[in-house]
Nucleic acid binder design. Structure first.
Lengths: 147, 147
DNA sequence: TACTATTTACGAATCATTCTTAATTAGAAC
DNA sequence: GTTCTAATTAAGAATGATTCGTAAATAGTA
């Protein structure tokens, strides 16, 4: 588990001021499972700090993304979600529930690297490759099923 | 190129009423390059049919997606984009411009199928896999660079 | 302790998308 | 061709996520 000191160091290490709001947002992303939305994060923080503004949460998220402390995860829906795990990884998207699970596999990454090494794409320089693995969990991970 | 008769057949083939609005939206998606947004489509159609409503375009898009005539393409931004190509394919996302290019490669798809056949994911049934290949075009495809 | 550039609180503004309702119309039945 | 009706559209209001604006607060420096 990531403790407060590490979070503090992550933030200051990027040359950012360490504010309670930034600490709380980053901590929330690490603690909340399932790639939280801005709203999930806001709700979570408000339990301890009812005064945090939603504008602040969005601003902090933007700052953290800009400084590569978190990444945005795009979904079919119109809400953005956030991920505090930075090592290259892929996502399992369940078509029935809104759970997004991380998928790491070094062999797969090697396979892809080798493939694109042999099959360069004309006029394009690859920086990274992310798989969207779409399907269904057999046993769902959370309650919020749709419709 | 897809002609009007084919478009008509695609729509009626799904048991949908063939309306001028549906014809125009689907035609626009085939004609407009680069995975248009709802707004791109609306603008395009308004050149010939200034009376089409934006609500209508969204409604038609929703219907076409529901009936598998087009698919939604998610991006980092908060606008949804649409794609009329249905065979499995992947996307090149340029980090500098908003051009999204299709990438087809059967060998790659075979590689992935084989990989996940040998490496099943616990508790998850895969339906399809899409790669987001992120990087940069060496020569950009369109003008709308960001900031 | 004081200073100042940065950050936050607050809510208004924006923008993509959805919803509502009455009017229109495609396609079926005659 | 006419009639009928359920499906579709027009028009714009409503919604919901996100961004913006600005005055007040504050982290980090001196």
């Amino acid at each position: 588990m990531i403790d407060r000191l590490k979070i503090r160091n992550l933030i200051s290490g990027k040359g950012l001021k360490v504010t309670p709001q930034r600490m709380r947002v980053l901590e929330a992303i690490y603690l909340l499972d399932n790639h939280p939305t801005a709203e999930n994060i806001l709700e979570y923080i408000r339990r301890n700090d009812p005064n945090i503004g939603y504008g602040t949460v969005y601003k902090v998220l933007e700052t953290l993304v800009e400084h590569n402390l978190i990444v945005k995860v795009k979904t079919e829906k119109d809400v953005m979600r956030y991920d505090g795990i930075l090592e290259n990884h892929h996502h399992l998207y369940c078509k029935q529930c809104d759970y997004i699970e991380d998928y790491h596999n070094e062999k797969l990454d090697k396979l892809l690297t080798d493939f694109f090494h042999e099959n360069e794409i004309d006029n394009f320089i690859i920086e990274d490759i992310k798989l969207s693995i779409n399907g269904n969990f057999i046993i769902h991970k959370n309650k919020q099923h749709e419709s």
